[in-house]
Design a protein around this nucleic acid. Sequence first.
DNA 1: ATGGCGCATGGAATGCGA
Length: 253
Amino acid sequence: MKLATWNVNSLKVRLPHVIDWLASEQPDVLCLQELKLEDPAFPAAELEAEGYHAVFSGQKTYNGVAILSREKANDVAYGIPGFADEQKRVIAATIGDVRVVCGYFPNGQAVGSEKFAYKMAWLRALTAWLQTETRQYPKLALLGDYNIAPEPRDAHPDWKEEIHVSPAEREAFQAIAALGLSDAFRLFEQTEKSFSWWDYRMMAFRRNFGLRIDHILLSPALAAVCQNCRIDKAPRALERPSDHAPVVVELRT
DNA sequence: ATGGCGCATGGAATGCGA
């Protein structure tokens, strides 16, 4: 079973890239973030034509998440239960016997800002919910744009901002990992300076000035059968790319 | 030193992303 996550930064603009990528990679599940469109505008028919079902939770201008799957998804959940939020950042569904949680974590803008406080509150709510979710579903994967670089090696040495690398954010990431979830990327040997996001400015992609902020965390039952995890940089080199690259895992199931 | 791009909204300039 092949699972992937990709922040597409506007599904409307990126649909051709997504369709090409689905055709070449043939994942069983693809989690999308930053759809930036409302549900009636979701390109369900175009994706159906590629052989993918979709469940989604969109909104105007910002945010929006979806789970695409070859098999139809069951038990779809929208948002974090008990955490009232206008922003559409979470969708979860069961595909086969795997619970897939797709998240677009808040950016946080700057440490100490109002948006940062929202990010931390959101992270606390997510972690509390995941505690029950991981108990209910032994086979669980949390995929998405975490907006956190978990360790120093996950940020380019020239990254000077505190956001995405602050101790508070890294502790929050570790609190999620402490639920028993493993960072699939770190289950395997990887090349140094592996990143999943590069700023559009400053020729950042060419200089590999990036961050690893898109992650796939796996429950023990899934980590045990994980064969590989890689970041596919190829779509970031296309014309009009998303600023994020897809992250992919393959599970022996 | 600053901001440097891309997207959405709305129909110019601004907010936001990370």
